[in-house]
Design a protein around this nucleic acid. Sequence first.
DNA 1: ACTTGCTATATTGTCGACAACTTAGTGTTA
DNA 2: TAACACTAAGTTGTCGACAATATAGCAAGT
Lengths: 214, 214
Amino acid sequence: MNQPITAADKTFIALRDDIVEGRIEAGSKLSETELSTKFAVSRAVIREAINRLESCHIVERKANVGARVVALSPQGLIELYQVRESLEGMAARLAATNMTDQEIADLGALLQSHFDEVKGGESYYQEAGDVDFHYRIILGSKNKHLISMLFDGIYHLVRMYRVQLGMAGPRVTTAYDEHKHIVQAILNRDAELAEMLMRRHILYSKNSIEHKLS
Amino acid sequence: MNQPITAADKTFIALRDDIVEGRIEAGSKLSETELSTKFAVSRAVIREAINRLESCHIVERKANVGARVVALSPQGLIELYQVRESLEGMAARLAATNMTDQEIADLGALLQSHFDEVKGGESYYQEAGDVDFHYRIILGSKNKHLISMLFDGIYHLVRMYRVQLGMAGPRVTTAYDEHKHIVQAILNRDAELAEMLMRRHILYSKNSIEHKLS
DNA sequence: ACTTGCTATATTGTCGACAACTTAGTGTTA
DNA sequence: TAACACTAAGTTGTCGACAATATAGCAAGT
């Protein structure tokens, strides 16, 4: 679903963004009738949107009771990063084998542009840039399941945590070095090393976040 | 959803089983009206079931066109096992830390019962036993996302491949030894080793399957 | 006062009908 | 003959109404 077609698509995305960006607060109940008036669509559309959100683990549903936005907890964030470490590590491993030379070259160029920004003192693009970097490596794995799990599931949840626990981009400069080494490993087609470095990279990121939370 | 409550729950499970067990063939189109008469429920219920199946990657939907059962391919199976290797490796790692002594003891007992069966020449329980073993380790990770991704998503797909590509339980005896070593690593609370062994175990399993397919 | 059971209300689950879209088929034109 | 436009049939998307279930409030009894 690169671009929304049906009303259910649009409602799903709008509702997801409302939740991820915190305009609908974590843990709150989602009333179908209320949402159907708010978005000016029928309850059937709302129900489909909520069902999809449940598949993303953004809301939880109980039969005959209703849906609630998931509650955020430090433990939840840690679990999320454990899954990220696992999946993105594998993605980096596969990317080292499956990315085309052109894709790797583009990735290097992206990294260079990040370096220029960081050197120039701009931190604005920092998070978007980080996401873009990971994005490309995940795509580079060429593994459908991996891509879908991370993009459709994990990443929105990670973003939800980031926004709501209020953590603007940390670790700009060190993260840049880590990114550089990962690209180098992929360039060398060293799958083993690429996976290790990516796992470390995410582990450090997790530790940094844990530190901020305590 | 441990036990189905609503009609949509039951229909989802029934439809999923029909697909996984091959009674609805891979790649075929799912007509909403047709299914609604077959299961004697309204189209709304069928649509919800199909939506859930889409989330599991068991069917693919295109807007205004319809849903098809996914097509099976050797490449698809390989990708699935890559994800399994990644996630279950992490599960074993976490299980080594998070399982209680009691849970580990139970796991050891389960393994012993498998040994007795294998020694007794019974191969009937082999697949169920293998699933049960992995099941417990995944639960032992205590990681909600990991558990849900594997049980709700990957495992049904793996089973679909197994059934439809017609591979009854392979590697009984060697798999037993691998299981034994994994339990030993968990017992020693050696997270690093537990992950490695689990990854190897699944990798071997993948190689065995690839060999059968060629 | 506390529990129990009923009732009223509100919410979710299910249904059948209509609207919007896709696609296959037909006929027309260059 | 090939390409295009249009029509008609069938499928999916959306809607509003009804049925089933859960919850809160009140009443009655111990």
